[in-house]
Simulated scan of single mutants.
Amino acid sequence: MTLRPLALSALALLAACGGPGPLLIAVPPAPAEGRVGIGFASVEVLEVSLPAYADGEEIFLQGQGGALTEAGGAVWADDPSRALTLDLSRALGELTGAQTAPDPWPFDDGPEAQVDVRLAEFAPDLTRGAFVLRGQYFVASQDGSGRDRAAEFLVTAPLPPEPGPAAIAAARAQATLTLARQIAAEGLR
């Protein structure tokens, strides 16, 4: 019985000595300006698929020859796949005016289209000076119209020469908005 309070005290002391921990980086949404007309009234965004290195909280920087190194001292504040899915859904809704939501679809009537994004690259690339999103997206019509589409994409958003965590987050938000605009204009027309 007396060991338990002693063990809890020791754990509390170790936690206090552990330092402040990594800096959590939240990604503020980029403001969506202008409208893009699409051919669907409702769009569901499936969970975005990320490459293995980007599917955790660690932030990786891409350098010469594609080498990835962990950005020490900073991590994403939210699960990247979840956050990117929510951000993409929000941006598509703002740009198009359509009813959009991430999977699972929360409304009674089903969506007219589903968007499935699969990324092969999701990193600030220091050699290009840009946050890079590269992959494929798929639009599957759910309304029986047969307007299915698939396309590859490469989206970049500029980074300053010595990007800090806030600049990386802002570039990621801008790249996500650019991808949403491309999907709306080309895949959901």
Rank of each mutant, 00 (worst) to 15 (best):
Arg82Ala: 10
Cys17Asp: 11
Gly63Trp: 03
Ala26Pro: 12
Asp55Met: 02
Val75Asn: 01
Leu68Lys: 06
Gln62Met: 14
Gly37Thr: 12
Arg4Met: 15
Pro106Tyr: 05
Gly18Glu: 14
Gly72Pro: 11
Pro163Met: 10
Ala16Gln: 10
Ala67Cys: 05
Ile183Glu: 03
Gly37Pro: 07
Val36Pro: 02
Ala74Gly: 08
Ala91Asp: 15
Ala98Phe: 04
Leu119Gln: 01
Ile59Pro: 03
Trp76Phe: 08
Ser81Met: 07
Glu94Pro: 02
Leu14Pro: 10
Pro51Lys: 02
Pro22Met: 10
Ala184Tyr: 01
Pro102Lys: 03
Ser49Asp: 13
Thr85Ile: 08
Arg118Val: 15
Arg128Gly: 12
Phe107Asp: 07
Leu11Ile: 10
Pro51Leu: 06
Ala30Lys: 04
Glu44Cys: 09
Ala120Leu: 09
Pro163Asn: 09
Thr69Met: 15
Gln142Val: 06
Ala171Pro: 03
Gly129Gln: 06
Gly97Glu: 10
Asp78Cys: 02
Pro161Thr: 09
Ala32Ile: 05
Gly56Ala: 11
Arg4Pro: 08
Pro165Lys: 00
Thr156Met: 10
Leu8Val: 14
Leu24Ala: 14
Ser145His: 08
Val117Gly: 06
Val155Met: 09
Leu92Lys: 07
Asp103Arg: 00
Pro22Asn: 11
Gly66Tyr: 05
Gly21Val: 09
Arg189Thr: 15
Glu94Gly: 00
Thr96Gly: 02
Ala67Thr: 14
Pro124His: 02
Pro20Asp: 08
Arg128Thr: 15
Asp143Val: 04
Asp103Ser: 13
Arg4Tyr: 15
Ala180Ser: 09
Gly18Trp: 14
Asp108Val: 00
Gly63Glu: 11
Glu94Thr: 06
Thr96Cys: 09
Val45Trp: 03
Pro104Trp: 00
Pro20Phe: 00
Glu112Arg: 05
Asp109Met: 09
Val43Thr: 02
Val43Glu: 00
Val43Met: 05
Val48His: 05
Arg35Glu: 15
Val36Asp: 02
Leu177Arg: 04
Ala30Cys: 09
Gly146Val: 09
Gly39Ala: 14
Leu11Ser: 09
Val117Pro: 03
Glu162Tyr: 10
Leu46Asp: 12
Ala170His: 04
Gly34Pro: 11
Glu94Ile: 03
Gly135Gln: 07
Pro165Phe: 05
Leu11Pro: 07
Ser42Arg: 06
Ser141Gly: 12
Gly63Thr: 04
Ala180Asn: 04
Ala15Leu: 13
Leu3Phe: 14
Thr178Pro: 04
Ser145Thr: 14
Ser81Gln: 12
Ala83Pro: 02
Pro106Leu: 08
Gly19Asn: 12
Arg118Gly: 15
Thr100Met: 02
Pro165Asp: 10
Phe40Cys: 10
Arg172Pro: 03
Ala32Phe: 00
Leu68Phe: 02
Asp108Cys: 06
Gly65His: 07
Pro165Ile: 02
Gly110Lys: 03
Arg134Leu: 13
Val48Gly: 05
Leu3Trp: 13
Asp87Pro: 01
Pro158Asp: 14
